[in-house]
Write a protein that binds this DNA or RNA. Structure first.
Lengths: 148, 148
DNA sequence: ATACTATCGTTGCACGCGCAACTAACCAGC
DNA sequence: GCTGGTTAGTTGCGCGTGCAACGATAGTAT
């Protein structure tokens, strides 16, 4: 009984810590990326996902999964980036329902410019989180462990 | 050089894992809490924060911090909950700019009803995440470690 | 071929969010 | 007392999001 309650409490604490650290990092990335290169966090996440598939296409559903977004939000996100000429939609012949997306040269270029900013902010915030008692344990784990 | 690059990559991976797990948990909580008790995650988070201060008031700014929300969003969140008679605004005498909030009996009752749902979903999703290779390491840590 | 069902992506809609501008209240200094 | 600066909370506004409904294509059974 007491043990089970403890487990519940530990999970709840852990979740609060996770949410808090996530909010902290997300807000910092959002601020820095928008001011420096005009990208929101999800926009960067999408470019990053496309870039890690170097040279290869991704379908809308994959992008939705990578960004943790709904299909509709993904549609509009891709539309926004397409309007800025950062990526292009490519109809694929074998399944005419599906839509591939790929980075344009401009999109690749902007990503290269954004990545160091992203990485620097991430390092800065994690370092800062390690000095905050509630966040330190989790932050330290992200900093040091491979997690996969 | 290679070492520094590795550190950057490890951090980026860690952040993606964190964001992914956060999204997974958040979506599941959102779904279960709204369908079962009509509360969003932030709404539950706020009630939870108030409840952990048992019997004591919280100011708007504290609530904003607890929910990782902007001041304006906090105002409207509190207004929503107040309109449902789950909490009440209390002007405090010593600083007439400040506003205290406290749970109503109805709010306390709803929280008691929501908490087991929240905890069950959290446990379920964490268990499920532990079977997903990318998320497992982080999920296991939340499950087992005290983190404070 | 013809239906029937499933999947992929897109749109209408309402809603919650952050930012900037605002009001009200506190707190100096003089 | 009054003035200037700061802090607490609230509103106007534009925007991104999820949900539900939709059209279009694919797959399958008969």
């Amino acid at each position: 009984m007491g043990i089970a309650d403890d487990a519940v409490e530990i999970r709840a604490r852990g979740w609060r810590t996770l949410a808090s650290l996530h909010g902290l990092i997300d807000a910092a990335l959002e601020k820095d990326l928008t001011t420096e290169v005009g990208l929101s966090v999800v926009e960067y996440t999408l470019l990053d996902a496309l870039n890690r598939q170097d040279g290869w296409h991704m379908r809308m559903a994959q992008l939705a999964r990578a960004t943790a977004l709904s299909p509709s939000a993904t549609t509009r996100l891709v539309t926004r980036l397409e309007d800025r000429n950062l990526l292009s939609r490519v109809l694929c012949a074998d399944d005419r329902r599906g839509i591939y997306t790929e980075l344009t040269p401009l999109g690749h270029e902007l990503y290269q410019k954004a990545k160091p900013i992203h990485d620097a902010t991430l390092e800065r915030i994690l370092k800062q989180a390690e000095e905050q008692p509630e966040l330190a344990p989790l932050a330290r784990i992200l900093h040091e462990f491979s997690l996969a």
